[in-house]
Computed example of a mutant assay.
Amino acid sequence: MSQYIDVDALWKVLVAGLVAGAGLVALYALGLVGLAAARTQDGTAARPAGVVVAAVCFALVLAGALLGLYVMLAK
């Protein structure tokens, strides 16, 4: 559109920011919800599916953080 603004690059930056920024935070929140869903009212672990969901979410968040550190420190 404009000779000063590269719209294609702008969309790439926007998508990367949403995935790496808000996406990791949303995955972390989903992991916390999974941990909360794994507990019953008396505090015993009754639903292992919640723990599995939480573990997967936390692993993805850790992988995203390590990838970000790798990309920043590789330069």
Rank of each mutant, 00 (worst) to 15 (best):
residue 14 L to Q: 09
residue 19 V to D: 00
residue 31 G to M: 01
residue 39 R to N: 12
residue 36 A to F: 15
residue 3 Q to I: 07
residue 75 K to A: 11
residue 13 V to K: 13
residue 7 V to S: 12
residue 66 L to E: 08
residue 65 A to T: 06
residue 38 A to L: 09
residue 60 L to C: 13
residue 24 L to N: 11
residue 65 A to H: 05
residue 47 R to N: 10
residue 45 A to F: 14
residue 12 K to N: 12
residue 73 L to M: 14
residue 42 D to C: 00
residue 57 C to T: 01
residue 51 V to D: 08
residue 53 V to W: 06
residue 57 C to N: 04
residue 40 T to Q: 14
residue 6 D to R: 01
residue 66 L to D: 04
residue 47 R to T: 00
residue 58 F to W: 00
residue 24 L to M: 13
residue 3 Q to P: 04
residue 46 A to P: 00
residue 29 A to Y: 12
residue 71 V to F: 12
residue 52 V to M: 03
residue 8 D to I: 11
residue 65 A to R: 05
residue 29 A to G: 07
residue 60 L to T: 05
residue 61 V to L: 10
residue 47 R to K: 04
residue 36 A to C: 09
residue 56 V to H: 03
residue 37 A to Y: 08
residue 12 K to Y: 10
residue 67 L to F: 09
residue 2 S to G: 14
residue 46 A to H: 06
residue 24 L to P: 04
residue 40 T to D: 15
residue 43 G to N: 07
residue 5 I to D: 13
residue 27 L to S: 08
residue 16 A to E: 10
residue 19 V to A: 07
residue 23 G to M: 03
residue 4 Y to I: 00
residue 74 A to V: 06
residue 51 V to C: 09
residue 60 L to A: 15
residue 55 A to E: 03
residue 43 G to R: 04
residue 35 L to G: 08
residue 68 G to H: 04
residue 13 V to T: 13
residue 15 V to E: 15
residue 29 A to C: 07
residue 38 A to Q: 09
residue 31 G to H: 00
residue 9 A to S: 15
residue 26 A to T: 05
residue 37 A to R: 13
residue 13 V to M: 11
residue 41 Q to G: 11
residue 47 R to Y: 01
residue 27 L to R: 07
residue 35 L to F: 09
residue 44 T to P: 08
residue 7 V to C: 05
residue 53 V to D: 04
residue 20 A to G: 12
residue 64 G to W: 02
residue 75 K to R: 12
residue 11 W to D: 12
residue 64 G to V: 03
residue 38 A to S: 15
residue 47 R to F: 01
residue 64 G to K: 00
residue 1 M to E: 01
residue 9 A to I: 06
residue 50 G to C: 10
residue 10 L to G: 10
residue 42 D to Y: 02
residue 28 Y to E: 06
residue 61 V to Q: 09
residue 8 D to M: 09
residue 46 A to L: 06
residue 62 L to C: 07
residue 67 L to S: 10
residue 21 G to Q: 04
residue 74 A to H: 08
residue 14 L to M: 12
residue 22 A to I: 07
residue 30 L to W: 10
